[in-house]
Amino acid sequence: MTKRLSLEGLRYAQAVAETHSFSAAAREYGVTQPALSNGIAKLEDRLGEQLFDRSTQGVTPTSFGLHILPLIQRALTEIDAITAEAHRLINSEARSIRVGISPLINPQLVARTYTAVRELPTAHDLVLREANMKELHEGLLAGELNVILIPAVKPLPHFEHRIIDSEPVVIVESTQDSTDPIELRETQHEPFILVPDTCGLTTFTNQLFETNDLALNAYSGEAASYQVLEQWATLGLGSAMLPLSKLSSPTAPH
């Protein structure tokens, strides 16, 4: 009898293919790295060949994996489509538009969304849900959300997406005495205070430094909110990067 493939193992393999890292894939799914590695090992055992080469340089698909991983991606897309379509059919008479919001999104964009729904020819209720990016992505996959508003810091395969807004990013420091623009390299003299990598801000900060070939000196601690991030930077614990709309006040030093 043919051995069945584990859906969990397939999702783990797709996550590793997208992140090129077992540890990053484990964080994305909220499991331990040994659990994820074990799931992929069982999948490879079922398939009869390794999907990934592991080395000190990182994780890359094997020649076998280059052929199989696109099939895994297509299979998972179809499986997720079953849930989404079932949810759509069950709620076909619903008059609600369910929108997921990242905490990093500008409140003005949320207000524009509300206005747009109010102006639709047919009356609809707007149901907002604020959550981290992983939960919003899962809600979209499950058909629980119609649209998600998130920062454009990582690809979302299988979904139509577009950039609809942008806003300035500012630096907060204890010595900030001007609102004049500064060069990114000028910020390297102090550590950067970061928040948990769930809303997209930390991903954006890392990508910004990497794109400009600069080393990010991360503060050894971690703030839990944008307000604390700003407060700690003002105290002099380090620098902080924030969207302008997330400052405690437009007149706050930045």
Rank of each mutant, 00 (worst) to 15 (best):
I72K: 00
R74G: 03
A75R: 15
L76N: 02
L76Q: 02
T77S: 11
T77L: 03
E78G: 05
E78H: 05
E78L: 11
I79G: 03
I79H: 09
D80M: 08
D80V: 00
A81D: 13
A81M: 09
I82M: 10
T83V: 08
T83W: 12
A84T: 05
E85Y: 04
E85A: 04
A86G: 12
A86H: 09
A86W: 10
A86D: 15
H87G: 04
H87C: 05
R88D: 06
L89C: 07
L89I: 12
L89K: 04
L89M: 05
L89G: 07
I90G: 12
I90E: 15
I90D: 09
I90K: 13
S92W: 06
S92L: 08
E93V: 01
E93P: 01
E93M: 02
E93G: 04
A94S: 07
A94M: 00
R95D: 11
R98H: 06
G100M: 13
I101V: 12
I101S: 01
S102N: 03
S102T: 02
P103N: 06
P103W: 11
P103T: 07
I105M: 13
I105V: 13
I105C: 05
N106L: 02
Q108F: 01
Q108D: 08
Q108I: 00
L109F: 06
L109A: 06
V110Q: 03
V110T: 05
V110M: 02
V110N: 03
A111K: 15
A111M: 14
A111N: 11
R112K: 08
R112A: 12
R112H: 04
T113I: 14
T113S: 14
T113Q: 12
T113L: 15
Y114W: 05
Y114G: 04
A116R: 04
A116S: 12
A116K: 03
V117C: 05
V117I: 12
R118W: 10
R118H: 09
E119H: 10
E119P: 05
E119G: 02
P121I: 00
T122Y: 11
T122F: 10
H124C: 14
H124Q: 14
L126H: 04
V127A: 14
V127D: 15
V127M: 15
L128V: 03
E130L: 01
E130K: 00
A131S: 14
A131M: 10
N132T: 09
N132D: 15
N132L: 10
M133Y: 12
K134H: 07
K134P: 04
E135V: 15
L136Y: 00
L136H: 01
H137W: 10
E138Y: 06
E138A: 14
G139A: 11
L140E: 10
L140T: 07
L140S: 10
L141W: 02
L141G: 05
L141V: 06
A142H: 01
A142S: 09
G143Q: 03
E144V: 00
L145S: 01
N146W: 11
N146C: 15
V147C: 05
L149T: 03
L149I: 12
L149D: 01
I150H: 07
P151L: 03
P151C: 04
A152T: 10
A152S: 13
K154C: 07
P155D: 10
P157R: 09
P157M: 07
P157N: 10
H158Y: 14
F159P: 08
H161T: 07
I163R: 06
I163T: 13
S166H: 13
S166G: 13
E167V: 07
E167A: 09
P168T: 02
